[in-house]
Nucleic acid binder design. Sequence first.
DNA 1: TCGATGTATCGACGCTTGTCAATATATCGA
DNA 2: TCGATATATTGACAAGCGTCGATACATCGA
Lengths: 110, 110
Amino acid sequence: MKKIAVIDDCCPQVLSAPLDDAEARQLAAGFKALADPIRLRLLSLIADAPGGTACSCDLEAPVGKSQSTVSHHLSVLADAGLITKEKVGRWVNCTVVPERLAGLRAALEV
Amino acid sequence: MKKIAVIDDCCPQVLSAPLDDAEARQLAAGFKALADPIRLRLLSLIADAPGGTACSCDLEAPVGKSQSTVSHHLSVLADAGLITKEKVGRWVNCTVVPERLAGLRAALEV
DNA sequence: TCGATGTATCGACGCTTGTCAATATATCGA
DNA sequence: TCGATATATTGACAAGCGTCGATACATCGA
């Protein structure tokens, strides 16, 4: 099914006009968080989990990295606003923030 | 010099299903090229230039970096398939490849 | 209270990246 | 042919990143 992307005029776009330094830095920070295969796989695992939410402990085995490495990457994703982390008891529930992804997507709009 | 392979089977998506390692690496390589403010500004300067094409020499002043640094960044963008470089006489004309940007954009589709 | 469990942090390590000056290569005009 | 110009390459350096083991912190069950 074809999706029609909605262009919101809130976000800077790479192709429509020259970016100033601040806009470029902000966008680059977002893309930097996406610029690692492990983080992309974590993101897709979280999005695909039931309810769109995954426990950190269930992500270590699929990506084959140590607990501290996975924790680090989840913090990077959270700092970039791509996921939220909610502590529930001993667990941390991670959820993707689709609005943030949409903003980066919009930046690549023609 | 290392070349980044172009994604031929149209466009893995981060959010629709868990990415395998190869898909994640390909997408990460694309986003890595976008993960630098200078490169984003170069990209937007090229896209905004008349005819969608810019000479490398006209890009150094706007971004305020040395000639070798700009040359390096343009090579990174070209290796990632985001621009093409065509040598014309003494000049190199850079042009954005919208299809490549569309592929990365599609990866962030919900 | 105590041990087990999930997560975050710390310290360390190689590797990569962005940057520049210097230099090399290629092309044009005179 | 010679000098000027545009670009690429090289070598070097500091800073940042991904990774791990070890450890600290927090929370639960018994």
